[in-house]
C-alpha cells in the first residue's frame, strides 16, 4: 500500500484527472473529502482504500486544504507535475466560478428585501456546520488522549478564539509542546 504503487498499467491521463476532480469539486458542500473518497476508491478504483487512507494521512500532516493536497498527490503520482496541476485546476475551477457568481448576486441584491435575512440564516447554519466539524474532530481526541492532547484543544481555543492572538505565535508556542506530548505514540 505504498504510494509509489499508484502507477499501474491503466494510469489515468491528464484529461481524466481534470474531469474526475471537476466532478469532485462540484459534488460536495461544506467539505468534499467524502466525495473524493467515493470517486477515487469506489467509482474509478484509482486507489485502494488503504492508499486513500495513507494519502489522507500525508495531506493532513501538511498545511493547506486537505482535499487540494489530495488532488496534488493523486495527480502527480499518475501524471507528474502536469497531472497535479490538472487535478487542482479541475477541483477549483467550477467552485471558484460559482462562488463568484453568488458573490456578484450578493453584491447586487444582498441588501434587497428579505435577502439579508436569508443570508443571516445561511450564516447561522454555516457556523453550526463548522461547530459540528469541530465536535467530530474533537471527540476521538478527547476520548483517546484526555491528558496529553485534549488540553491543547483548549489552549489553541483560548489563544486564537478568545484572545484573538495572531495564529503564527499560537502555533509556534503550542505545536512543539503538543508534538512533544505525542512523542512515542503511533499516529
Amino acid at each position: 500500500m505504498q504510494l509509489r504503487d499508484f502507477s499501474q498499467s491503466d494510469s489515468p491521463g491528464v484529461a481524466s484527472l481534470f474531469l474526475a476532480f471537476l466532478s469532485v469539486g462540484l459534488s460536495g458542500f461544506g467539505g468534499v473529502l467524502p466525495f473524493a473518497r467515493r470517486m477515487l476508491v469506489e467509482r474509478r478504483a484509482w486507489l485502494t482504500e488503504a492508499q486513500f487512507t495513507e494519502t489522507l494521512a500525508l495531506c493532513q500532516t501538511l498545511p493547506g486544504p486537505n482535499i487540494v493536497n489530495v488532488s496534488v498527490v493523486v495527480g502527480s503520482r499518475f501524471a507528474g507535475a502536469t497531472g497535479a496541476l490538472a487535478a487542482v485546476t479541475g477541483l477549483l475551477a467550477a467552485p471558484v466560478a460559482i462562488v463568484l457568481v453568488l458573490a456578484t448576486l450578493y453584491g447586487r441584491y444582498g441588501a434587497v428585501g428579505r435577502a439579508p435575512a436569508m443570508i443571516a440564516g445561511l450564516g447561522a447554519a454555516a457556523c453550526g456546520l463548522v461547530a459540528a466539524t469541530a465536535a467530530k474532530m474533537a471527540a476521538p481526541i478527547v476520548r483517546k488522549r484526555p491528558v496529553t492532547a485534549a488540553p491543547f484543544i483548549a489552549l489553541a481555543f483560548v489563544g486564537v478564539g478568545l484572545m484573538r492572538w495572531p495564529l503564527i505565535w499560537v502555533l509556534l508556542a503550542l505545536a512543539p509542546l503538543s508534538v512533544a506530548a505525542a512523542w512515542g505514540r503511533k499516529a
Binding site: 494521512a57 493532513q60 500532516t61 457556523c127 463548522v130 461547530a131 466539524t133 469541530a134 474532530m137 474533537a138 481526541i141 488522549r145 492532547a149 485534549a150 488540553p151 491543547f152 484543544i153 483548549a154 489552549l155 489553541a156 481555543f157 489563544g159 486564537v160 478564539g161 495564529l167 502555533l171 503550542l174 505545536a175 503538543s178 508534538v179 512533544a180 506530548a181 505525542a182 512523542w183 512515542g184 505514540r185 503511533k186 499516529a187
Partner: peptide
Amino acid sequence: AALGAGLAPVTVGLVVSSA
C-alpha cells in the same frame, strides 16, 4: 507519527475558534 498526533489537537482548537 508525533507530528500528525501533535498537530491534530491544536488544529481542532483552531476549528473551535472558527465556530
